[in-house]
Structures are given as structure tokens and as C-alpha cells.
Amino acid sequence: MIYLDYAATTPMSEEALTAYTKAASSYFGNSSSLHDIGSHAAQLLHICRQQLAELIGGDERGLYFTSGGTESNLLAVRSMIEAHRHKGNHLITTATEHASLYHLFQQLETEGYEVTYLSVDRFGQIDLAELENAITPQTILASIQHANSEIGTTQPIQEIAKRLRKHGVIFHSDCVQTFGKIQVDVQKMGIDSLSISSHKIYGPKGVGAVYIDPRIKWTSCFLQATHEFGFRPGTVNVPGIASFVTAAQQACEHLADEHARLEHLRQYTISRIHEKRLPVAIEGHPDAHLPNILGLSVQGMEGQYAMLECNRYGIAISTGSACQVGKQAPSRTMIAIGKEEDEAKQFVRISFGKWTTLNEIDRLLTVLETICQQRKE
């Protein structure tokens, strides 16, 4: 099976697996226990917190480990808005956020918050002028993703941060898809908070992290929670965290070379689509994009059909975010960039990873060509 769905999840690397096994064997204690076995686990947890904070250019005092990207997004936003609710009730986000955030903001509207959903252009980027116009004296937080998980378009985070900071608005960014693929540095980006996840960078599932600048106040969502400095309850997954940080270190160490390799695969795929004259349109921003995600619209064919046919030929691709599988509605991202409902349903996503080869790309394009020809007949 050819795997081209790395944006959904990645297999664990050998290094991450080794780190997990060693930590689970030697540091199995509860990091909150006061005996030596617990203290040893707490020491490893402290080292992991320092190392991951360093990778994102942050202060270790603001790093909290979670069960993954979705929980990170939910707890980050809820913890910060609860602490600042006395300042206002207006929030800003985008129409193309990950489902975890989009649905959270919909829920917050039922709890008395006013939410502005910024539109995006045909490439998936927000309008900075629209952002500035959306800010009011009641605005307390904005959550704008670093990159879209379906078409890979990145947002001008530093410019966004400048505008929000000028008005004293807290800035959270979902960096789950970008961490380990492009540089993520909270200081250079000017963000107050971010979310990242382990399983997108060859670490284990069920592990993630939130960063909140220590200068930003937050209120725990859980009464009398004791773990992670009160940020969340539950025994801390020290072996998973050690494995996550190992994977993160590797991803960041090889980031530049891997970025170049993945971008080459992406451009190769686009050029071969044009050469073969396939009825396939490229979605997303031509320049501001992740190197590993390529959104495609297969004209005259539903994406789900294309995905299932590719699967029949032994190729794994997707119709968008794995968190939306089974939903009947077309992609929110496709609708947001101006597609009609029928057009939006033609979307498929291919995403590359460390084991993707040019031969696999050639095989995918041959299969797509076959599927398109069969559809015509």
C-alpha cells in the first residue's frame, strides 16, 4: 500500500518507538508520586518540557502536555477566555479552522460570546484589513491557524500578530500541521499561545502540547486539577511525552532538508499533472503553503469516489481532514475559498512524508489518469 495521507497521521519513527520503550521500562512511575520512582519520572518530564519549549522558542513555564491537538486547542482557548472574560466577550477566528476549533467557537456562541469568522480569499488566506476591522474594544482573543490542514495554505502570522498585539488581543494559533514542517517560534511569530501534536511528526498518538506565554493569565477548565500545574487532570503520559519530544527534536533537526525534499515532491506532482493534462485543479496558495500538503479538485468526479478508487489500486489518500470523515457536507475550506457545493465535493488531499518517493507519485498519477479515463467511458 502506498501511503499518501501523512497529514492525517504518521507512523512512529524507530527513534520515537525506542524512546517510548525505554521510558516505559525505566520511568514508569507516576510523575506526581513522591517516592524515588515517581521523582525519576518527574525529572524526565521536566527535561522533556525544557527541550520542547526550546524547540518552539518558548519559556518552559508556559508549556503543558495534553492528549493531542484537539484537546490542546480546546483547553488553550477556554482557559484564556475564561481568565479574560471580564474584559469582553468578542472572539475572532476564521471560516477554515480545524473542526476542533470551529465547533468550539460555535459552542461558545451559545454561551454568550460573540464570534467573528473571518473570510478567506480563493487561495485560503485571510484579509488583514478585515481582521483589523473586526477588532472591537470587546475583543479578547483571536484564534487563527498557522496552516490549513486541507489545502496547506499558511497565514501571515507575524502580520496578524502585530495587528492583534496593537489592540491587546490574545493570539492563539493552531500549529498542529506546521510544527516540524516549517519553523515555529513563538517569539518570532509574535503569538501568545499555540497547539501542537505528536502523531503528525512521527511520534505516538494521544500526546500533544499547549504553549501559553507565562505573562498571559489563564484559568483552569477543571476544578482542583493537579496535573500539569493545574492545566488538566489525569496521570501524565511520561513515556509518550519522551517519545513525542524525541520525534520533535528529529523533525526540527532535519527541518530544512526535509522541507526542500517535500517541496520538490509537491512541485514534481504539480508539473506531472500539467504534463499529463489531467482534469485536476491545484488548490491552495502558490507560494504560502506547507511543502507536504497538496489539495486537488478532480473535475467531474466526487472526491470520495476518487479516494475509494485509489484505495482499490493500493494508494491511500484522503478527502480532507480525518476529523471530518463520515460527514455528508462538503469541505468547509472549499466552500470558504469560493467553490460551489458540487465543486467542493470534488476535493481530495494528498500529503507527503519522510518515506514518500517519486515512484510513488508516478504511480498515483497513473492511477488518477486511469480513473479519469474510466469515468469518461
Rank of each mutant, 00 (worst) to 15 (best):
Q138N: 14
S33A: 12
Q106A: 13
T94K: 09
I37D: 09
Q374K: 13
A24I: 09
T246G: 01
E82W: 08
K162M: 15
D185S: 12
I241M: 03
V238S: 00
G300M: 08
R85H: 14
G314E: 05
L223C: 06
E263W: 10
P239C: 08
Q187L: 10
Y27F: 06
Q250M: 14
L52N: 09
I56H: 10
S72T: 05
G230C: 12
E130I: 02
A19F: 04
V210D: 11
H172A: 05
Q145T: 13
K345Q: 07
V238L: 03
R272I: 06
W218R: 03
G62Y: 02
L368N: 00
Q155H: 13
E159M: 07
T356A: 14
D192A: 06
V238E: 00
V207A: 03
L358G: 07
T366N: 12
P214C: 13
Q43H: 11
E130L: 01
R266Y: 10
R165P: 06
V210G: 05
S32A: 15
G190E: 09
G206L: 01
N359Q: 13
I37N: 08
I361F: 02
A42K: 12
I37T: 11
E341K: 07
P214F: 04
T10D: 07
R261G: 09
T21C: 11
H172G: 12
E258N: 15
Q183G: 13
S321P: 03
S79N: 11
L358F: 10
D257Q: 13
T21L: 14
S297Q: 11
Y102M: 12
G152H: 03
I170G: 00
L364S: 01
F347R: 00
R349D: 10
W218V: 07
R61D: 09
T139E: 05
T153R: 05
G124E: 02
T139H: 02
A95F: 04
T66M: 12
S321A: 11
L368T: 00
F179V: 06
Y117P: 02
T70N: 13
G29P: 05
Y211I: 02
G29D: 04
T235N: 12
F244N: 01
Q328W: 07
S149F: 09
P279G: 06
Q106C: 10
K188S: 10
P291A: 10
P239L: 05
M334G: 15
I293Q: 05
G57A: 15
Q328S: 15
L262A: 04
S243K: 07
S25E: 11
G234T: 06
Q346N: 12
I170F: 06
N133C: 14
N311E: 14
I371D: 00
E54D: 12
P279T: 00
T66W: 06
E159N: 05
F229Y: 15
I335D: 08
Q51Y: 13
K339Q: 01
G38N: 06
S39A: 14
T319N: 08
I191F: 07
A251I: 09
G284H: 02
E15D: 11
E275R: 10
Y20G: 01
E132R: 06
